[in-house]
Design a binder for these strands. Structure first.
Ligand code: ZN
Ligand code: ZN
Ligand code: ZN
Ligand code: ZN
Lengths: 146, 146
DNA sequence: TCTTGAACCTATAGTTGCTAGAGACATTAG
DNA sequence: CTAATGTCTCTAGCAACTATAGGTTCAAGA
């Protein structure tokens, strides 16, 4: 049996994150020691590793919740799981495409700047004049800040 | 003079977002009508367009704040502005690289699945077994959920 | 056995960049 | 003049954690 700290170390997940996952029902409430401390077994370790890996691949927690409940029914068709994964792939590709457009514009404006004063700075100028841009203009698709 | 709704329309920014930018000090408090409604002029419009464009390019609001205060000092060197832009470019490239690794793994696992039952599903299997992955293992670099 | 220090507990608030709602006031078109 | 739309403030919510405060439990050394 592992304490929460050991579990976190084993799975590469921070302790508060594990408690958070329990709170939102992604991990079941574990057994407790006589002194009320959480104790985890192999099952919890596997489940947490699954969550961790899915998060690394960018799956939202809600999708992971669905994947976990699917993985508890091994005899059913995996069509639902595959379609969640395909949606994640599509989202990933869309983000790559968008980021490439942003990369190109950033490169262009940095490359064109003569590095003089602010009043001549191509970076500032391009940001202020949005007219000839080709990239996405829907704020709902805006990148999360770096 | 524009009301907040007209300004939002003109700049492609939602009304609550404009009020939010004012609240965090990114836009100065505008004049008000006799009935206490916000009225904006050309300056505010330009400033908001600048913010909007920078956000589309993924700059964090804090970076935009710095860029705006730089653009208020036109005689200074643009080195600081350029370095903010270069940092944004670097962050964008890092995200593209990471997303490409994720894309590859998602493609691989989807492509290898025979689409039978969950117990044979390659998607579920790969998520559960994290051992032979090459992608980033630092949760601090994890992708924001799609 | 006692003590110290690390790890653990709960609960709450903060992060980023907005978005949505409630309930009240202002403006404008017909 | 009235009805509809727009605006006001304030509060709370989203994802997915992270951090802090104030307290308890556990393991190891003296
Ligand atoms: Zn420059
Ligand atoms: Zn642009
Ligand atoms: Zn499958
Ligand atoms: Zn992997």
């Amino acid at each position: 049996m592992l304490t929460i700290g050991k579990l976190g170390e084993a799975a590469g997940v921070k302790v508060p994150t594990i408690r958070y996952y329990e709170q939102i029902g992604l991990l079941p409430p574990p057994d407790r020691s006589a002194g009320n401390q959480r104790l985890y077994g192999q099952r919890a370790r596997d489940r947490l590793a699954f969550i961790r890996h899915a998060r690394e691949l960018g799956f939202p927690l809600e999708a992971i919740r669905d994947l976990l409940s699917l993985s508890d029914r091994p005899d059913q068709s995996c069509a639902a799981a595959d379609s969640i994964a395909r949606a994640q792939l599509a989202a990933t590709r869309a983000r790559i495409a968008r980021l490439r457009a942003l990369e190109a514009e950033l490169e262009r404006m940095i490359g064109q700047c003569a590095h003089g004063t602010i009043s001549d700075c191509r970076v500032i100028e391009v940001l202020g004049d949005h007219a000839q841009c080709r990239h996405d203009h829907d704020p709902a698709v805006a990148e999360p800040a770096a």
